[in-house]
Write a protein that binds this DNA or RNA. Sequence first.
DNA 1: ATTGTCCTGACCATCTTTGACCTTAGCTGA
DNA 2: TCAGCTAAGGTCAAAGATGGTCAGGACAAT
Lengths: 155, 155
Amino acid sequence: MVKIMSNLSNNMEEYLKKLLKLSTAGFIDIRRKELASKFSCVPSQVNYVLETRFTLERGYMVESKRGGRGFLRIRRIHLPVENILAMFFQEAADNGIGSKKAKDLILRLYESKFISFRESRLIEASLGSLQLIKDESLRDKLRGKMLKEMLMVLV
Amino acid sequence: MVKIMSNLSNNMEEYLKKLLKLSTAGFIDIRRKELASKFSCVPSQVNYVLETRFTLERGYMVESKRGGRGFLRIRRIHLPVENILAMFFQEAADNGIGSKKAKDLILRLYESKFISFRESRLIEASLGSLQLIKDESLRDKLRGKMLKEMLMVLV
DNA sequence: ATTGTCCTGACCATCTTTGACCTTAGCTGA
DNA sequence: TCAGCTAAGGTCAAAGATGGTCAGGACAAT
């Protein structure tokens, strides 16, 4: 009797991921308008889903073409752990990192088997405690530093 | 026979616990507004009940999502209630804990095989980053909270 | 009377959805 | 040819839908 809450964006995300799994090519091509119509929403809703769910941080790449015969192409990418870590160290470790990006990063490291499930939960728990800090800038900075220190230990 | 005071909060608590018992999934999802409406109170009352009755110490975990189709998810978790560690964590989370005590605790947890070597290093790394914080009181408090959150996750 | 618990309401933060307006690519007909 | 039409996709800001926080007053227990 437990109802799982789902919304348009989540449904569309699931749908696209299912398509991706089924595809042999490693990517899928879709029409923005058609997809929007299938889910009875405005086309820009599709952009929202792509921007929030199919980001590089989560391991996806989106290409597109406008005009007649335009398309949206979604690709699953599997970066080696070193690249994932390198991206983090290059742009987030010192300048701070938002909580959403941090979560995505942890998820990817887990998916890549670089860290265990317990370790991923441990890291998330430590970062989650930072909500105690009011100053957002300090929070982001600390989050970056903590992640860096923790990942260094694991290398 | 102790008579349970019947007030809004207690009623809501009982109601939620009944739902939890009935659920096969081990958790329930609710809408804050709906629940408030069912009990004819303001939505923030729900938060009050969750904060006072469905705490980690009492064996519950609450997750939530805001925005359209948001939800509150209450989960029953099974901790050894009379666990002395749990009390210690609570104390640490409430009043903070110094870095030396924290280190000793981590060491003991590792020695008793409660956590792995990597995990112990991970925890120390995250706590070490707190040096970035100037305010000692905030630092101790954060250290306590992080420790608690991290170890709770591992139980 | 004092203290702790309960409730409320105003204001805040976050996530989602929509719609008006913009840009780009391909096609077509004078 | 190539200007203009048509068919895509892109951006952005505002509105909508939830949940979160906090201070203060009401009320109950002692």
